[in-house]
Amino acid sequence: MAARNPGQEFDITTGAVCVYASRVADCVRALKKVGGSHIPIASVATGFPTGQVPLKTRLEEIRLAVDDGASEIDIVINRAYALSGNWKGVYDEVRLMREACGEAHMKTILATGELGSMTNVYKASLVCMMAGADFIKTSTGKEGVNATIPVALVMVRAIREYYHKTGYKVGFKPAGGIRSAKDACLWLALMKEELGDEWLQPHLFRIGASSLLTDIERQIFHFVTGRYAAAHELPMA
């Protein structure tokens, strides 16, 4: 790591701040106060985490979040449609959600721990990409099983196949259960090996880092001081 000059700032920020749709306006105001207006606001819309509300309500929630200032929308797919093999139903709903997002970036959560099989994970990945997803995401973080390497391998290979056939690059986000910096390195290696260096950039790869952030802070503390911090020394702990 290069020595830091006095007054020098590293251009490192979180990929986005993720909040419920009802808190987007509050988030916009809070970030503005601290000079963080450049940080994207993502909203978990569409009845997160289960999506078990009428489609009309889910679409309206997306529109409200975008109107309040969200530049990214995280949607959840209809798991009942996926489990029953109604892939046209999944496609039609995701397509309508893509339209409701307007210019906002759309991440589609597959909730892979509830899809029943790797075949369903693969089909859901392709259907959501065809419907206009900018990202496909493993999980809400609320399922019993969240981001796992075997599921991720299926998803990223679906991304690779879709790119080879269409020329369109779709991003990938694992979320849920990623708690250590070592875990993050494993996910980075997966992306590099399967999709290449470009997919290591934030416009094509994100990690759900709510639990991970504390360990990253611990590792930086160790790098600087040579020892690991006690819990009371870390703000996020």
Rank of each mutant, 00 (worst) to 15 (best):
Y20N: 12
Y20E: 00
Y20W: 07
A25H: 12
A25Q: 08
D26C: 06
D26T: 07
V28F: 06
R29W: 01
A30I: 09
V34P: 06
G35Y: 05
G36R: 03
I39C: 04
P40V: 00
P40L: 01
I41M: 06
A42D: 14
S43Y: 01
V44W: 06
V44H: 02
F48E: 04
F48S: 12
F48C: 02
F48A: 11
G51M: 13
G51K: 13
G51S: 02
Q52C: 11
V53P: 14
P54A: 05
K56I: 15
K56S: 15
T57Y: 11
R58G: 14
R58A: 15
E61P: 02
I62K: 05
R63H: 10
L64Y: 15
L64T: 15
L64A: 15
A65N: 03
A65Y: 03
V66I: 07
D68C: 01
D68L: 01
I73K: 00
D74E: 10
I75P: 01
I75Q: 00
I77K: 14
N78E: 09
A80K: 12
Y81T: 02
A82T: 05
L83P: 01
N86T: 04
K88P: 00
V90W: 06
V90K: 00
Y91C: 06
D92V: 00
D92F: 07
D92S: 13
D92L: 05
E93Y: 10
E93A: 03
E93G: 08
V94Y: 09
M97L: 11
E99F: 05
E99C: 11
A100R: 13
C101L: 03
C101W: 12
G102F: 12
H105L: 14
M106G: 12
I109S: 12
L110A: 08
T112R: 01
T112C: 12
T112K: 02
G113V: 02
G113R: 11
L115F: 09
S117F: 11
S117N: 03
M118F: 13
T119I: 10
N120H: 13
N120F: 10
K123M: 10
A124M: 07
A124F: 02
S125F: 07
S125Y: 01
L126H: 04
L126F: 14
V127M: 05
C128N: 11
C128K: 02
